[in-house]
Write a protein that binds this DNA or RNA. Sequence first.
DNA 1: TAACCCATGTAAAAGGTTACATGATTTC
DNA 2: GAAATCATGTAACCTTTTACATGGGTTA
Lengths: 189, 189
Amino acid sequence: MSLPHILLGLLAEPATGFELKKRFDQTLRHFWTAELSQIYPALHRLHSGGLLSVRRQTSRQGPERRIYYRTPKGRRALVAWLDSPIEPGDLRIGYLARVFFAGEWGNLSRTRDAIARLREGFDRELGLLEPLGPAAVQQAGGSLRDLPDTALHAYFTWYKGLLAARSNLAWCDEFIAEIDRRQTIDIKE
Amino acid sequence: MSLPHILLGLLAEPATGFELKKRFDQTLRHFWTAELSQIYPALHRLHSGGLLSVRRQTSRQGPERRIYYRTPKGRRALVAWLDSPIEPGDLRIGYLARVFFAGEWGNLSRTRDAIARLREGFDRELGLLEPLGPAAVQQAGGSLRDLPDTALHAYFTWYKGLLAARSNLAWCDEFIAEIDRRQTIDIKE
DNA sequence: TAACCCATGTAAAAGGTTACATGATTTC
DNA sequence: GAAATCATGTAACCTTTTACATGGGTTA
């Protein structure tokens, strides 16, 4: 049950559901996503449980905005979540499931194309992620040491994504190199 | 909709639901998991769709075993899945969500403990994963080049997990080192 | 004799995606 | 005038987890 807690975390700064969605897409995308259709009901539940309060505001554009504020009870729930034991947890990585069975193609050049395509995706992800960390560090003073302790957590979360993205690309490159080596040998023989 | 396709993939070798569960836990655990309560109904659906056939076998132990075989139609469905475009896909990484908000603790030593605990988990995962790749290579002849093309896919899937596990550990170490650096400075000042 | 492995399932609940519904304002 | 952005939500569906139900055989 992470989504409600993530919302409580994000609401250190009050926000509307719509704004929270943007924070998912911009900042958390490399480790969590959520749709508006999931966020709105979750906010309602947190509100009716007393973990959030709301202030309504008319907006120039579309319906009334609902700005959510974390209550003291909400903050306590967040900290209780942080206090519970942390574990690596299970992953579901769809592309690896497919690579695992790609031998069924019976043809390495098919695999090569798939990995090359995957690499493009990883490269796009790296492109989106890469500037975020340095931007935060620059704002703090230019060096990792200048980051306040609170921001250090966001920084290392970002850095995890960066290491993953680099590792993804390196893996694609090694895989493609091995396929090319095999295919070159095939042609020679 | 990956689970049914993964089952079709695993059923290159006929198996019971119970055996398939073991394959998830032993071989696929670093990129996919499934519970028996999900596997059994999925097998029923694949069977009634004609993608699998069944042979019943009495077992010494407990109820009748149901051995599932992939039909030609099942194999076609698997290949169609492989043919569809591959993408990185979204991840949900619960521990990163928590690290992201761990600044709320207001205390780096709490974070240090959490990361140290996480590191233990990553280390256990590495321990489980590490021997699998070399075992497969050894069986094939001792070198990556000896692996048949089909086994290469499983090998690189394993290798992806290995890179991830190593990267996880390196990240924990860097994070802990930075916390220690900050805490040493705090004491000095 | 207790714990564990074999072996099958169903049911309820939780978590998440996709589609639908509405409609104003701003930017190209 | 079309597309994007702001802004809220509901409904149906799919996926996954947790709990329940059953029961024989093997190992310490």
